[in-house]
Nucleic acid binder design. Structure first.
Lengths: 132, 132
DNA sequence: TCTTGCGTTGACGTCCGCGTCAAGGCTTAC
DNA sequence: GTAAGCCTTGACGCGGACGTCAACGCAAGA
């Protein structure tokens, strides 16, 4: 199949596929007239990449999975290198979630304090005891 | 004080201060020779910006806080607009944390599944019953 | 006087994953 | 024949918050 069809079947764009190729992630065979050609295996590789991208993996982080599939393994994560990426991503996510949770708490505290200092805030849920 | 001193006192760079000025966030007075001049109030504004930046606020999101201080209020969050930014940021953080938590769970599940399929993973904590 | 160390503006570089032309060639349907 | 719709490469744009020159001016101490 050609690039347009592959892109459509994977729910992405031709620009993206050419970008992946430029990164050496998804090289393409060529027909006589210079058109890129892909097969079902390429679609599988592409879907692996897209799934990981949707998870927030960097493109480079998808490379071990792609190479694993290309090496003939049934799944992209059937190789130790892929597992390593999983583990590093988990640690990264844990750190990030923890940081964001901390920030969230600080912002919430600031909001509470500021709301108390400026009672005339928008949308007071109800007037508790305050005779106006 | 001049730009270098202000940057040092706020723990940032002159480039950053010029950038803020270009965004209209922290305009500077000028001396006769064209040098930027700042006072203690500017330092306070700058610290407000930096604190919010450290929390992950976009530069534009710090603007209401800066304007609030410049309007003479004791704190950057003494104004309704600032409270609005707090609330939007909280909602944003909640959404983000939730998404990341979901992704984390999915990645963890993938890792568990893949580890089971490829038992020869690195660093087995201990050998349970497996005679080698 | 000369060097050092401030300051100035302007402009390009960075990172990442593409989007969006531009200018042209191939193929197919009408 | 020709128009539509695919393909090709190349190259600039974007967003955000600056970093990093370059080329210059101003000021103060040895």
């Amino acid at each position: 199949m050609r690039i347009g069809e592959l892109a459509a079947r994977a729910g992405t764009t031709t620009r993206t596929l050419r970008y992946y190729e430029s990164r050496g992630l998804l090289p393409a065979r060529r027909t006589g007239n210079g058109y890129r050609t892909y097969d079902e295996d390429d679609l599988k590789l592409l879907r692996q990449i897209r799934t990981l991208q949707d998870f927030g993996f960097d493109l480079e982080e998808t490379r071990p999975f792609v190479e694993c599939l290309r090496a003939g393994h049934p799944e992209g994560d059937s190789c130790p290198a892929s597992l390593g990426v999983y583990r590093r991503k988990l640690a990264e996510l844990d750190t990030l979630i923890e940081q964001l949770t901390t920030v969230r708490a600080q912002v919430a505290a600031q909001l509470t304090r500021a709301e108390a200092a400026v009672p005339g805030g928008p949308e007071p849920k109800c007037e508790l005891g305050g005779h106006v």
